[in-house]
Amino acid sequence: MRGRAASECELIIVRYDTPSLMTWNARTYDGGFGYVSAHGAPLVDLLDPRPGERIVDLGCGTGVLTAEIASRGAHVLGIDGSPAMIEKALAQYPGLDFIVGDGRDFVVAQPYDAVFSNAALHWMGSEPDAVISSVREALAPGGRFVAEMGGAGNCAALTAAVSTAWREHGLPDPDLPWYFPTPAEYAGRLEKGGFVVRILEYFDRPTPLDECPNGAADWVRMFAGSLLHQLPAELIESLLRRVNELAAPALRRETGWMADYVRLRFAAVRR
């Protein structure tokens, strides 16, 4: 493994208390929800990509962080399950490599030095162990897995408002498309899957929804649109109004709406 030797790292677990199927709209994702990529900058620093390294960006979206990693001299392959995201990534960064792929079973021809993932693993929660296994197989021995995902309690107020609004409208509880594990749970999966966990951080990240004039309703349209696709069209506006009413006491401020994000960030090394 290039860079810092594994023996120089220690396992660190920190809790900070500071203030499925999904069809993505790549333009909206980059515009109204660009904070997803913006908050990934510290994760790139944790990855510490070096010139000449081979790195997979798993769940690369429109390629913003893929390009950042490449700018540091690494050879990067961006993988995402959304053809729309990959299409936009290829258009924005024509000199980089992007492919459509599934985190549960992607395969690379030669081992990589690192796999990086920002805000994507919680979308692959139906088979988290399969994702970890695929990542391990993509890495050379000593290769590193550096990622950030939603952790336990992520979007608790948002998802509670969604579930309550659904029940009040006589609908079954929604099948929420995310996997938000506790630090202990995911560390256990990594260790069982052939990794040594070197760093694990678990922290609150309240995030302004600056581009959401309709508050929680806009967030639901972007990140839980698959739930709306299953419903009669005449119910949707009423549901989303009720989501806003229920979420407002916890998430609406004088300055605007907030998302109650909780993040799980880690660095692990393949045994």
Results as ranks from 00 to 15, higher is better:
Gly3Ile: 13
Arg4Cys: 03
Ala5Asp: 10
Ile12Gly: 02
Ile12Ser: 12
Thr23Trp: 03
Trp24Ser: 03
Asn25Gly: 01
Gly32Glu: 13
Gly34Pro: 07
Tyr35Pro: 01
Tyr35Asn: 03
Val36Tyr: 06
Ala41Leu: 12
Glu53Met: 14
Arg54Val: 15
Val56Phe: 07
Asp57Tyr: 08
Thr62Val: 13
Val64His: 00
Ile69His: 05
Arg72Trp: 11
Gly73Ile: 01
Gly73Val: 07
Ala74Trp: 06
Ala74Cys: 06
His75Thr: 15
Val76Gln: 09
Pro83Lys: 07
Lys88Cys: 09
Leu96Gln: 14
Asp97Leu: 03
Val100Gly: 04
Gly103Lys: 00
Gly103Met: 12
Phe106Glu: 05
Phe106Gln: 00
Val107Leu: 15
Ala109Gln: 15
His122Tyr: 10
Trp123Asn: 12
Gly125Ile: 11
Asp129Pro: 11
Ser133Ala: 15
Ser134Cys: 11
Arg136Ser: 10
Ala140Asn: 10
Gly143Arg: 02
Gly143Leu: 04
Phe145Thr: 03
Val146Leu: 03
Ala147Asn: 04
Cys155Tyr: 10
Cys155Ile: 14
Ala156Trp: 07
Ala156Tyr: 10
Ala157Tyr: 10
Leu158Gly: 02
Ala160Met: 03
Ala161Phe: 01
Ala165Leu: 07
Asp173Thr: 05
Pro174Lys: 11
Pro174Asn: 09
Leu176Glu: 04
Thr182Gly: 10
Tyr186Asp: 06
Ala187Arg: 11
Glu191Trp: 05
Gly193Thr: 14
Gly194Ser: 02
Phe195Ser: 06
Phe195Gly: 06
Ile199Phe: 10
Glu201Asn: 15
Tyr202Gln: 02
Tyr202Cys: 12
Tyr202Asn: 14
Phe203Leu: 13
Arg205Lys: 15
Arg205Leu: 13
Pro213Ala: 05
Asn214Gln: 13
Ala216Asp: 09
Asp218Lys: 05
Val220Ile: 13
Arg221Tyr: 08
Ala224Asn: 09
Gly225Val: 14
Ser226Ala: 13
Leu227Tyr: 11
Gln230Tyr: 00
Ala233Pro: 00
Glu237His: 02
Arg242His: 01
Glu245Val: 14
Ala247Tyr: 10
Arg253Thr: 10
Arg253Pro: 02
Glu254Gln: 11
Gly256Leu: 03
Trp257Cys: 02
Trp257Leu: 05
Ala259Lys: 00
Ala259Ser: 12
Asp260Leu: 06
Val262Tyr: 00
Val262Gly: 09
Arg265Asn: 12
Phe266Thr: 11
Val269Phe: 07
